[in-house]
């Protein structure tokens, strides 16, 4: 996107002093360029997190919970609905990305009313997403009614349904003496936190809280920045400045948050 007031300077700069200062070598403003480079480094941070997640999951494959079996609740409906809620969250975030890009589009046309409408919808989408994430965390932390048994060695087992003497640990059924000694030293747990996780290996919970928490914090800061920009739009700041490039820069950040969620969705819930 090239603003009309940008192109004058570009034409007068020759190739020789392009990087000598005072020019915009990539025909993008300083702020936009730096936003791109920030996002690129942030993407590397998230890659490191997801890479570490994949690695630990591979190492502890036998005790790693299946995300489908952990996150299978849907608000106001009883029963098990794997993937539905997280798919809804993904759609909400994609939708808010669309409203954001439409806000940027109206900004280019200096259409204040359009920017207000679409930016407002983007903020609402962001808030709904944060609410959904809080709901998901709440259920993960509280866990199931049945709970699980946590052995002295930290391994997690569940009762075979209908019995109180047979247990399943890492997909293996234990009975008799072995099961009895495990149950005797075990502790009943519900839900997940940073120390234990009723669904399986505690690292799963640690990574879940850390990665979705880090992403959620990005969404939260995104909403705060969007609100600041929204107030500025209402106060005619960008109208006076002559362009809405700030909306575009914040838009880049917002799309990045959506982009990261696309990857978190794949590597946490699908793979």
């Amino acid at each position: 996107m090239i603003f009309s007031n940008n192109s004058i300077m570009e034409n007068t700069v020759t190739k020789n002093n392009l990087w000598g200062g005072g020019a915009r070598p990539m025909i993008a403003s300083y702020g936009k360029l730096m936003m791109w480079f920030f996002l690129m480094t942030d993407a590397l941070t998230f890659s490191a997190f997801l890479g570490a997640y994949g690695f630990q999951r591979f190492v502890h494959a036998d005790a790693w919970p299946i995300a489908d079996e952990v996150f299978n609740h849907f608000p106001f409906i009883h029963g098990e609905y794997p993937m539905f809620f997280v798919a809804l969250m993904t759609f909400i975030l994609i939708m808010s990305s669309v409203t954001m890009v439409l806000a940027v589009h109206h900004g280019h046309k200096m259409n204040k009313k359009g920017v207000i409408i679409w930016l407002g919808l983007t903020i609402i989408g962001g808030l709904i997403f944060l609410g959904s994430q809080a709901w998901e965390w709440y259920h993960f932390i509280h866990g199931t009614y049945e709970g699980a048994l946590r052995g002295a060695d930290g391994s997690i087992a569940h009762f075979v349904s209908g019995t109180t003497s047979e247990i399943i640990r890492h997909g293996e059924v234990l009975t008799g003496e072995v099961a009895a000694s495990f149950i005797a030293s075990a502790q009943e747990i519900h839900g997940a936190n940073l120390i234990y996780n009723e669904y399986g290996h505690p690292l799963f919970a640690n990574f879940f809280f850390f990665i979705t928490g880090f992403h959620g914090f990005h969404v939260f800061s995104g909403v705060v920045i969007l609100v600041v920009i929204f107030i500025n739009v209402l106060r005619n700041t960008y109208e006076k400045r002559g362009h809405y490039e700030m909306v575009e820069k914040v838009g880049l950040y917002w799309h990045f948050v959506d982009l990261v969620w696309v990857f978190v969705f794949t590597f946490f819930y699908l793979v």
Binding site: M26, I27, A28, W36, S97, M100, V101, H255, D258, L259
Partner: peptide, 16 residues
Amino acid sequence: YIVMTFMHLGDEKRSL
């Protein structure tokens, strides 16, 4: 699609 269309990277200079 997100990077090229929503973030308009497709409309930027090749060097960027």
